[in-house]
Design a protein around this nucleic acid. Structure first.
Length: 259
DNA sequence: CGGTTTTGACCGGCGC
DNA sequence: GCGCCGGTCAAAACCG
């Protein structure tokens, strides 16, 4: 790992920790998400300082994901997940709105709905219908058990065609805030992509492969983190989504077999 | 009329 | 082997 870059990143993580502490005190409702965020930042901090290995840093984070998410419970730890690309998107909607509409730029056809054991909200199943000849992508949409105003969309597979609508389809409504985190078995990449009327920011943790330790890191990471922390401080109405988004993005960091 | 949604039935994996 | 559960199918209803 690149020592100088990691030191800088570690400082940023410290700033994030401090900011999260402040937000924690400000908003009781966010306690769960912020606990996860703070915990994850500490593990990442320790990891960056070399106090933890990749495996020990990721394991508690994964455990936090399990405890915070109603879906993908014990039995869902089936190994097919590692093969296909899995993305998870959180979308804030009107809590009274019972629809499962997550505008992401693609056209979907609903093929089923189920009420799952650990979440009273029904889960809807969609297939991509933009390319009927065989787009393999599926989507599951279910309301978050902890926050009914959050829609959790889980995408499986990759589109084999172009998107029709604008790629930033996440910005479909003024108060729609979206987090996307993408994982697969070969990358170590977490993306947060928020869109608010006056706020757009992102955080990307670069892939950490043994053959690409430092060259791919650049100063953009630090700038993005600074922007992210600044926006956390400025926009109290945005904290819920940010908290959940950051927690989700961190906890979905995939395992890597190499440090 | 064609595409989409709804919803009960069915299937397969998993734990006991 | 049985029951539970998540995921999918398919027929009917719905809609533009």
């Amino acid at each position: 790992m690149d020592g100088e870059h990691d030191t800088s990143l570690a400082k940023k993580v410290q700033v994030m920790e401090a900011e999260m502490e402040r937000l924690y005190k400000e908003n009781e409702k966010l306690s769960f998400s912020l606990e996860v965020m703070t915990s994850n930042c500490r593990f990442l901090h320790a990891y960056l300082q070399g106090k933890l290995t990749r495996e020990t840093a990721v394991a508690p984070v994964a455990a936090a994901a399990e405890s915070g998410s109603s879906e993908d419970s014990n039995k869902r730890a089936r190994n097919e997940v590692a093969k296909t690309k899995i993305s998870r998107v959180l979308t804030r909607t009107d809590p009274g709105d019972s629809s499962h509409v997550v505008k992401d730029g693609y056209q979907w056809r609903k093929y089923g709905q189920k009420t799952t054991k650990d979440n009273p909200s029904p889960r809807a199943y969609f297939r991509c219908s933009m390319f009927p000849a065989g787009c393999p992508v599926k989507k599951k949409v279910q309301r978050c058990v902890n926050d009914k105003s959050l829609l959790v969309a889980t995408y499986e597979g990759e589109h084999n065609h172009a998107v029709i609508e604008a790629p930033n389809g996440f910005t479909d409504s003024p108060d729609c805030t979206t987090m996307a985190s993408t994982t697969n078995s070969h990358s170590f990449l977490a993306n947060i992509n928020f869109s608010q009327p006056n706020t757009t920011l992102g955080l990307a943790l670069p892939p950490v492969h043994e053959e690409s330790t430092s060259p791919c890191h650049d100063s953009m990471d630090n700038n993005i983190i600074e922007e992210y922390v600044a926006s956390l401080a400025k926009d109290p109405n945005f904290t819920t989504t940010l908290a959940v988004a950051v927690a989700r993005s961190i906890v979905t960091l995939p395992h890597s077999t190499q440090m």
